[in-house]
């Protein structure tokens, strides 16, 4: 296999890792006011992802860095082209990360309420916009002869892209609800299960519509198989949570996201950013790629260290495997508000 194909696949793997892991963090963040009716319950939600959210978030940084190294043209065109949506995502990720870390640092209701808003909005914006961004990559955007983005902000908003955004939003909400059903106990667990079934049904409808649309426009045999697998995994996952098999349900939503993203990349290949302009130059795995020397160096590094990363991240989930309920939440630190 060509190194450019290997790196296309590796970048797909990084995005799959990001959406499968950070996806449930986004879901938990958005469900905070829904499933966390008391302060103790909200803290239950936060502590299911507390030890792992930061490690999950790194996947997108590595995806960005790997794209820079392996496909510099793709990195340059994508991030300068999708400028304002990406800026919104960055600001959202900033306030959301701090919400996790700072919310419990001061024992004051207004302080916590503000960080709750930051967490909900900061999870909602990327959950929606990553879907919009990926749909636009697949759909193609106006790239001129120099592969520079020639559209505006509104170019990126069309029905297919919005459907992509709604799909990721609903998928991550479902994934988060299933994760909470798996990781909590008591009323939060019960409510999360109930919510997961409803959200899952909506997510399945959106996903089937979006993936079929994608398959019709740019799909091939591989993407068809992957999309079908994603749909089956999602339906089985939603059914499993309905009958209380939370572990299997999580496997289902995890696999559904992984297969759907894999399918999107399969549908994209060998393009990385097609153009909608007749005289434009679209980007492919070939014309956007770094040299084979750079790709070779990077392949060695990735081959050695990716398994190590997977091992220690997996171990982290094992260390923190215990279900959390309101019994486990210690009293707030009795930290008076900072003096003004």
């Amino acid at each position: 296999m060509e190194l450019t194909t290997v790196w296309f696949a590796l970048i797909a793997v990084l995005w799959i890792g990001y959406f499968c892991l950070e996806g449930f963090d986004f879901g938990v963040g958005m469900l905070l006011p829904v499933l966390g009716r008391s302060e103790a319950e909200r803290r239950v939600l936060l502590n299911t992802v507390g030890p792992v959210w930061d490690g999950n978030a790194v996947w997108v940084l590595v995806a960005g860095g790997a794209t820079f190294a392996a496909f510099p043209e793709w990195y340059a065109t994508l991030f300068s082209g999708f400028y304002l949506p990406l800026l919104m995502i960055l600001v959202a990720l900033i306030v959301r990360g701090l919400a996790f870390e700072y919310r419990a640092k001061v024992d004051d209701d207004r302080w916590r309420a503000r960080w709750d808003v930051a967490l909900v909005v900061g999870s909602f914006v990327p959950a929606l916009l990553w879907g919009v961004a990926f749909a636009n990559i697949l759909h193609g955007v106006p790239l001129d002869a120099d592969s520079e983005y020639a559209g505006g902000l509104l170019t990126l908003l069309h029905p297919y892209a919005l459907l992509g955004g709604v799909t990721t939003l609903l998928l991550f909400l479902t994934h988060g609800a299933v994760f909470l059903a798996l990781k909590t106990d008591g009323p939060v667990r019960r409510d999360a299960r109930g919510l997961a079934s409803g959200l899952g049904t909506a997510a399945a409808i959106a996903a089937v519509a979006f993936l079929s649309w994608t398959q019709r426009d740019t799909g091939d045999l591989a993407s068809a198989v992957l999309f079908l697998g994603a749909a089956v995994a999602l339906v089985l996952g939603v059914l499993a949570v309905g009958v209380g098999r939370e572990g299997w349900a999580f496997v289902g939503t995890f696999a559904a996201i992984a297969l759907a993203v894999a399918g999107l990349f399969a549908a994209l290949f060998p393009d990385v950013m097609p153009t909608t302009l007749a005289d434009g130059t679209g980007l492919t795995t070939t014309n956007a790629a770094a040299t084979s020397y750079t790709l070779g160096v990077m392949t060695v590094v990735a081959a050695v260290f990716t398994p190590v990363v997977l091992a220690y991240q997996g171990w982290t989930y094992w260390v923190f495997r215990q279900r959390i309920s309101v019994h486990h939440i210690p009293a707030a630190g009795r930290v008076p508000e900072p003096q003004r």
Binding site: V52, D54, G55, A57, V58, L61, V62, G64, G65, A66, F68, A69, A70, F71, P72, E73, Y75, A76, A290, T291, T294, V297, M298, V301, A302, F305, T306, V309, Y312, Q313, T316
Partner: peptide, 23 residues
């Protein structure tokens, strides 16, 4: 510069950021 400059950035992510944030 992506061909040259991107490599250390990507390696930084894979070797350092994951280690730091997970541990």
């Amino acid at each position: 510069v992506g061909d040259v400059f991107g490599a250390p950035l990507a390696i930084e992510g894979l070797l350092a950021f994951f280690l730091e944030s997970t541990f």
